[in-house]
Simulated scan of single mutants.
Amino acid sequence: MEVFDCIVKRRSVRRYEKQEVSDELLCKLVDAGRWAPSGSNIQPLHYTIVRTPEQIKKVKAFTPGMSAEVPAVIAVCADLDLAARKGGKLGCETLAVLDAAMAAQNILLAATELGLGSCVIRSFNPEAVQTILKLPETIVPQLLVSIGYAARTPKPPRRKEIEAITSWEAYGE
């Protein structure tokens, strides 16, 4: 699949088939995440893959944004101590968050290419998820990505026209 086609085809999937996602595919998704850009090449991210129904149920209890039965979740986490040591306040407060977002986008696009549905989730309790996943104090979950085979693929949302969102050389021109 061409990159642009993958970008246009990607949807936030919230309903999944009750089919497991293989370890091989989940590792490919993490590999896609690790190749995302990293501010100052700090690479503060850590990925925790959650697959067992029991563990997913625990995470879901603190994740109102996760609306369905989910076969797998990838927690995109940032080592904020490493980010602060290598990038100072900017590294900790901004670059680690941007790194997580870019890694999640790579995961979403790779999932689409692999025939999987996915949805990025930020509406969760980070402290509770950190505890459930037994993450060290400095490793903080930034985003969750649900992964599975789509039971239903949403229609594409309406997008603004390019002319409505683009300026040339200066705003409004």
Rank of each mutant, 00 (worst) to 15 (best):
V8G: 02
T166W: 03
G39D: 05
L25C: 05
N125W: 04
V70K: 02
A164T: 05
R11W: 00
L29I: 09
Q55R: 15
A104K: 03
Y149W: 13
L82R: 15
R152F: 08
Q105M: 15
T48C: 12
Y47M: 02
R85Q: 11
K160R: 11
V70H: 02
E169M: 02
T153L: 04
E24K: 03
K89E: 14
F62V: 09
G115P: 07
G33I: 04
D99T: 05
M102R: 06
F124N: 10
K155L: 07
F124R: 07
G148F: 09
W35N: 10
T112K: 00
R11E: 07
T112E: 03
L26K: 06
S40T: 02
M102D: 11
V13F: 10
R15H: 11
K60W: 03
I132N: 06
T138V: 03
R85S: 11
A111G: 13
C119T: 09
G33S: 03
E20K: 12
R159V: 05
N41Y: 04
A164S: 07
I162A: 14
I42D: 01
A61Y: 02
V59D: 12
L95N: 03
V129Q: 02
A36H: 00
I132L: 10
E24G: 08
I49E: 02
A150G: 04
I162T: 14
A96E: 00
D99Y: 05
W168Q: 13
E127G: 13
L80A: 00
K89Y: 00
E54C: 05
A96D: 01
A32W: 05
D81C: 07
M1D: 11
R14L: 05
K9N: 12
E113W: 00
I74F: 08
S22V: 02
Y171L: 13
V145R: 01
P37I: 10
V129L: 06
T52R: 14
F124C: 13
G148A: 04
A111R: 02
L108E: 13
I165L: 14
V76M: 04
L114Q: 06
I107N: 02
P44T: 01
P37W: 08
R34V: 11
S123C: 13
